[in-house]
Design a binder for these strands. Structure first.
Lengths: 185, 185
DNA sequence: GCACCACACTGGTCAGACCAGTTCTCGTTT
DNA sequence: AAACGAGAACTGGTCTGACCAGTGTGGTGC
């Protein structure tokens, strides 16, 4: 039997510690790969394996020549990854449409109690603008989601929008915006 | 300007392709790191960076001396990871709880019209079993989601469950199973 | 004071080495 | 012929050192 904790796992822990104890905040710079390596008594390769992993998770962003920066990982980029993969095997369009509607209705319900009148004008302006249907839909619900107080659901909704975009080019239109606005009034 | 696609990203794509086109299924073995490296004209380091990343995502599992295997990644431990890394943030927890409820209610609504009586007995059996609360909750809704006809939403629900599991250790509160069953009857 | 350039630093990538496990092969033993 | 076992061949884990390509900086010359 061996200790099967891999070095790159330890590096992850260390980075976690850095964030917690050293007070590194989103946007801040992390120590360089070489620095981390010597600090942790690990090779640069191992450090890189760890960094690449959490980069994929969207927790950090690296810029060649500059450095590695902690990111605002509350942006749920993970969801993106998961979605990419989840949608791959399940992706019936109906499922997706239904899911999107579910989230949109959720947003509408939540918005009902919080929305301010001036916002309604803005919504009307959007649906009467001459942008593409897709643009309109996006803008319309983006504003509504502002009142839904749930960033997570909003993110998921956006992801689904993107996917839908990739799947079927049009449709969706004739969305009953007017009815929604009446509900909100 | 340069192509800023990193090698390890390409490796990820390639693995993706392998899974899709070569029909590699969960449990199957992936080519060895060295093989992948030569196949992709990349260094082993780069291949490893990619592998480590998706290992962290729980998509593969590696065993020294044996190889790298595609995993049944239905329950991503990303969530767990994120949980440890990301959030002590109550906002997130609330978002998550709300989202889970939204999906569960969706499932219940859909199940109402399709569920068969014998299934109700099964549901009752589950909530009266002596498994952990979390287990019960999982099994309970897994069955209900069977009737919801939406694999996508089911998947997302499962992901969120895992996520939540990583967040707060204890309990799936006093979920009103009885009330749900009454609704379904 | 300003412009410019060399140098130090950062990430990106590679090649090669060695260790530590597992699996396979093939000759020896029974 | 079947069972065994030693070793080769393979797999992942880790490290070192090298080089490239960007970025930042400080000093020099104007």
């Amino acid at each position: 039997m061996v200790q099967q904790v891999k070095v790159y796992q330890e590096v992850l822990d260390e980075i976690h510690r850095l964030i917690k104890e050293e007070g590194i905040m989103p946007g801040d710079k992390l120590p360089s790969e070489r620095t981390l390596a010597t600090q942790l008594n690990a090779s640069r390769s191992s450090v890189r394996e760890a960094l690449r992993a959490i980069e994929l998770l969207g927790m950090i962003v690296t810029r060649r020549g500059e450095g590695t920066y902690l990111r605002d990982y509350k942006s749920f980029q993970v969801m993106q990854l998961l979605a990419t993969f989840v949608l791959q095997d399940t992706q019936t369009v109906e499922n997706l449409t239904e899911a999107i509607e579910l989230l949109e209705n959720f947003a509408i319900e939540k918005a009902k109690v919080k929305i301010v009148p001036s916002e309604l004008d803005e919504l009307k302006r959007i649906i009467n603008s001459n942008q593409s249907d897709r643009e309109k839909h996006h803008l319309f619900f983006e504003r509504i989601f502002n009142y839904a107080d749930n960033q997570l659901i909003f993110h998921i909704w956006r992801l689904m929008q993107d996917f839908e975009e990739g799947l079927k080019t049009d449709v969706k239109y004739n969305y009953p915006y007017e009815r929604v606005i009446m509900q909100l009034e």
